[in-house]
Write a protein that binds this DNA or RNA. Structure first.
Length: 575
RNA sequence: CGGGAUGUGGCUCAGUUUGGCUAGAGCGCAGCGUUCGGGACGCUGAGGCCGGAGGUUCAAAUCCUCUCAUCCCGACCA
């Protein structure tokens, strides 16, 4: 492609509303433009990157035995009512009615539609297993879209669904998809990690997320530095190996702690470490009050709480609720004489006694609290967030907490949807069985953003070869020099004949502009033809990632020397 | 939805505190000339109802009220 014929509007400066690097670079490189919050236009270059990603996904899905189809984006409400998600999914589901006043939604995901399809078609165990997928635009009315393509309201997603006869079958489908995902993200040249994850609103009981490692990621991963354990911190379990404390504790004593309504303030005031405190946090779980106790230096993991109580919503209590439920100002809640029915305590609180806690009374705390003796604990459970000081739950090794961008998620759904919607089949014995399902998503547009997030420098994007819109950029530095132009044309023709996608910068611009744009656009290979180097019989070649430049002889063997150099550059991406 | 911030040519911003001449700059864009290997320079030019509505005032980009939009922090998630 010739630059002069392309619509690639590069920008010297990034718009102020772009915050993260991928967003800035996508805009500066002329790959996307914002239509409005969370909605983006893919310009030709952005679309090419998206298509590169899609193709890899498609190839690996097909290799794994999945078959592509395409479902409507608009979905009828009654399907969602069948599974109950019409009421559960919340405001993220964009709903509307047609001219006949029938209710519809814009598909944020397609479990209902695919299950409806399969239940009508599949009757026999002979037709299973079945894995179907599509690559399609999804719409989720996100509360807060942000970071450009990273969290748009409309985004490109690959969603696959598996249907199996039995548990062994779904295990196999899951493994196939998991393996395919490993290949997909490896081929894309991404540094990523598969991690254990919470299942969220899709449902089911088991899942893995695929995280691209990047400091700007919205998720935190608990990854063992010794073994291969890795989990989203939302899920990362904390082993409790201690035994219940048997020490005796002095009688409870009330102490005045004026103005001390934070852990820090109480510690300073009483001269005790945060580990001697019990924090009492109040949550509205499905609107009902629940108290959670953790040690002063810990954080509550509300996902664990949600799962423990099988709740659909878990929210921090508002200050008004805290006051109403504890009859005391915010900051002084405590487990003793707490008038809340459900009080859950983190496991480790069993291991010690003699705590400092709030007294449910303004400016007052209690010391010498023994939870067994003085409080009514509904249950002990793993309720806190994992920290750097915690050991790996598998091997006891040291844990690291890198940030990640979730680009893929694989679930075993079980029979949640097939049962609700009656997706059954007859087994070998002629007996009716419910299909077991799995679902597998990849945020294709997010992959592109995550890739840029991970691969960039001051000059711009550094595309891995697999996702680069153009593998090579060919710069003509002297468009008015006939000799240079002839050489450029010759090389361009050869590159095209060799099937190497090339963007030829033939614009009437100064060399500086071309160098800057080439770096910005991020093609892994750069070839520079100018009068100066050509006079020496040379063409310059630059590895975008390393910045290393070599001079290739501009003779009849050019393609051979170029191919050798190219192979070297490209292979450096696959190690 | 709660908290914070911002809306002025295509882009980045100044001007708003303390109302006052014809609303400015840089980049980009068009024309001409000089340049030409890491975002050149000179000259000329086009481009704005200062987010919108209402108000205060002799006078509003500037003050007040309402409204819309965008961005950041929290809950959601590919």
């Amino acid at each position: 492609m010739r630059f002069s014929n392309s619509y690639i509007p590069t920008l010297k400066e990034a718009p102020t509303d772009a915050e993260v690097i991928s967003h800035k670079l996508l805009i500066r490189a002329g790959m996307v433009r914002k239509l409005t919050s969370g909605l983006y236009i893919y310009l030709p270059l952005g679309l090419k990157a998206l298509e590169k990603a899609s193709r890899i996904v498609r190839e690996e899905m097909n290799n794994a035995g999945a078959q592509e189809l395409l479902m409507p984006m608009v979905q009828p409400a009654d399907l969602w009512q069948e599974t109950g998600r019409w009421d559960f999914y919340g405001k993220e589901l964009l709903r509307f009615t047609d001219r006949h006043d029938r209710a519809y939604c814009l598909g944020p995901t397609h479990e209902e539609v695919i299950t409806d399809l399969v239940r009508g078609e599949v009757r026999s165990y002979r037709q299973l297993p079945l894995i179907l997928y599509q690559i399609q635009t999804k719409f989720r009315d996100e509360i807060r879209p942000r970071f450009g393509l990273m969290r748009g309201r409309e985004f490109m997603m690959k969603d696959a669904y598996s249907f199996d006869r039995d548990q062994a079958g779904v295990d196999e489908s899951y493994r196939k998809m998991y393996d395919a995902y490993m290949r997909i993200f490896s081929r894309m040249g991404l540094k990523f990690r598969a991690v254990e994850a919470d299942t969220g609103s899709i449902g089911g009981n088991f899942s893995h997320e695929f995280m691209v490692l990047a400091d700007t990621g919205e998720d935190t991963i608990a990854a063992c530095t010794a073994c291969d354990y890795a989990a989203n911190v939302e899920r990362a379990e904390i082993l409790w190996k201690g035994s219940a404390c048997t020490e005796t504790c002095p009688a409870v004593e009330e102490i005045l702690t004026p103005q001390a309504h934070t852990v820090e303030a109480v510690c300073t005031f009483l001269g005790v470490p945060a580990t001697a405190l019990v924090k009492t946090l109040l949550f509205a779980v499905d609107k009902e009050p629940v108290a959670v106790l953790v040690r002063g230096d810990r954080e509550v993991n509300d996902i664990k709480l949600k799962n423990l109580l099988h709740a659909s919503t878990v929210e921090f209590a508002t200050p008004e609720q805290v006051v109403a439920w504890t009859q005391s100002p915010v900051g002084f809640a405590g487990p003793v004489h707490l008038n809340i029915a459900r009080v859950y305590a983190d496991n480790e609180l069993q291991g010690a006694t003699d705590w400092v806690t709030g007294a449910n009374k303004g400016d007052t705390h209690l010391r010498h609290v023994d939870l067994q003796r003085d409080a009514r604990i509904t249950a002990y459970a793993d309720l806190r967030q994992i920290m750097l000081t915690d050991p790996c739950p598998h091997c006891g090794g040291r844990i690291a907490l890198p940030r990640g961008i979730e680009v893929g998620h694989v679930f075993k759904l079980g029979t949640k949807y097939s049962e609700a919607m009656g997706a059954t089949f007859l087994d070998v014995n002629g007996k009716e069985q419910v299909m077991i399902m799995g679902c597998y998503g990849i945020g294709v547009s997010r992959v592109v953003a995550a890739c840029i997030e991970q691969n960039n420098d001051d000059g711009g994007i550094i595309f891995p070869p697999a996702l680069a819109p153009y593998e090579a950029m060919l710069l003509n530095l002297d468009v008015k020099n006939a000799e240079v132009c002839a050489k450029v044309d010759e090389i361009y023709t050869q590159l095209q004949a060799a099937g190497i996608e090339t963007l030829l910068d033939d614009r009437e611009e100064r060399p500086g502009i071309k160098f800057k744009d080439a770096d910005l656009l991020g093609s892994p290979l750069q070839l520079v033809v100018g009068a100066k180097s050509l006079a020496r019989g040379c063409i310059e070649a630059k590895d975008r990632r390393t910045g290393l430049k070599v001079e290739l002889a501009a003779d009849n063997n050019f393609m051979a020397t170029f191919s050798a150099w190219r192979a070297e550059v490209l292979s450096s991406w696959t190690v």
